[in-house]
Amino acid sequence: MSAQSIYYKRKTIDYIAKTLAWLATAFGLFFLTWILWVTISKGFNAFGLHLFTQMTPPPGEESGGLLNALVGSLIMCLLAVLMAAPIGIAAGTYLAEYVNHSWIGETIRFVNDILLSAPSIVLGLFVYTLVVEPLGGFSGWAGAIALGFIVLPVVVRTTDEMIRLVPGQMREAALSLGIPQWKVNTQILYRAALPGILTGILLSLARISGETAPLLFTALNNQYWNTDLSKPMASMPAVIFQFAMSPFEYWNQLAWAGALIVTLFVLCISIFARIVLSRKKL
């Protein structure tokens, strides 16, 4: 083979690879736009104020909204964050400040990373055996706890990372002034790491607001208005799941409207979280 033909062969391979890389990117973006477009167009068709003022309808009915599901989701998500975020921040502090380089810190980090990527349905089953079975029934509490176990590892990880990013001089300066360790932690490190920690909490909120699997057998679902956490509770994802899988046209429409609301909520929070984080860098 002449030098010329080797050169052309290499050039051709390079062109093919580059074209394929462009195509791969186009493939990803194509599906993103397709999915978002379908969600937005189908969701808008069914959109209206009635979604926020009426309860979920019984089968076959042609009116009704998503009010109880929205409220249920809101309650359980907020409760999950309220329960898990303090524990997560504390555990993250422990990792970053007390056991940073020891084997116990590494073990907890490893376990936390596994929890972070563990299938959410497995966490749901865990909470079923932990809460639902002993208490003898599905409940809003169980749903909130299941979501809490999804929030926890996210908050632990971001807190740990953000506190470790705080320059060592700041700790040393504070300690040399005679400030006790707990005050250094709460009043200096937390303040410096706050935007990062908040971002972590927001991202975890975005993640749980679309989570379905862990709610299916913890909070179950509820067709009626309910704010009693000891009873089964409706949630957006569970209602969307039920309505989308049903043969009723109106239910399907409501499911699309719900999907749009959840997607918009998740995207808004993610964007907001990015803004919070980027402000820190200024």
């Binding site: 990117t25 990803g28 973006l29 599906f31 993103l32 397709w34 999915i35 978002l36 379908v38 969600t39 975005a206 607001s209 679309g210 989570e211 379905t212 699997a213 994802p237 969307i240 799941f241 989308a244 499911a255 699309w256 999907a259 959840v262 997607t263 998740v266 995207l267 993610s270």
Partner: peptide
Amino acid sequence: AIELLAGIPSIIYGMW
């Protein structure tokens, strides 16, 4: 945009 794909809840993928 690609990271946005990771943020879409899985139930939306299911419905789509």
